[in-house]
Design a protein around this nucleic acid. Structure first.
Lengths: 110, 110
DNA sequence: TGGCAGTTTGGCTAATTTACCAAAAAGCAC
DNA sequence: GTGCTTTTTGGTAAATTAGCCAAACTGCCA
């Protein structure tokens, strides 16, 4: 039954979809530096607290982060820091895109 | 200006969002094995041709695949095969999720 | 007990995404 | 040219997502 869209692809998609938002990628990058509480992240992102809280719950539901109460704040941290490694490949795609875009421009200029 | 959501995060999100669908992940996995034409992929996915075509155009717009006409078909291939490497981290997240889920079950059984 | 800081949840609207069908392109054979 | 194969595009309805406000909840301290 290989070679078909299956549960595995759906499971992958859920996790990747959870990453697919600028604010959530920012959160991932920030949590890679160390744990942060909702208030910290809200200040940095500059959106409503409830919005940031919902982004965090999306990441948490996907299993990408874990939270821990301490003092009167809730701290979040990355569960699998390896996800940040992926960004180097994403950067490569961006670079190749930019290069090609540049070539098209050069070509038009001639 | 570091420590804020910026254009870079938006660019990342566009690429990651393009991956965030079961069928598109299947396509990525399949193209990692070698190039395929729309018809091949459509048969494997089992959706309407137009649907698969649109998935391919999403991937193409993100710069994840490139196409090439040959004979009377259009062949697609991965532009940066490194994106498949990310799946190992995604699998790790899934594994950790499963393990934790299992622990919760065990705990309830007691 | 009341009040406060920090966080989550519910409700709502606007915007985006998905999948199918039908129709249009594009290329090749006759 | 007509017809055939392959792929893309347009249109539409259903589902999902994002963001804000307001309200609720939690733990702490006076």
């Amino acid at each position: 039954m290989a070679g078909k869209v299956n549960t595995r692809h759906e499971a992958w998609a859920k996790i990747i979809k959870a990453m697919a938002h600028p604010s959530r990628l920012f959160i991932i990058e920030e949590l890679h530096k160390g744990e942060r509480c909702v208030g910290d992240l809200t200040a940095m992102i500059g959106a409503d607290t409830s919005t940031v809280s919902k982004h965090l719950s999306v990441l948490k539901n996907a299993g990408l982060v874990v939270d821990e109460k301490r003092a009167n704040s809730i701290y979040y941290k990355l569960r699998c820091p390896c996800i940040i490694d992926f960004m180097s490949c994403v950067e490569e795609v961006l670079m190749v895109n930019a290069r090609e875009h540049n070539n098209i421009l050069k070509c038009c200029r001639k």
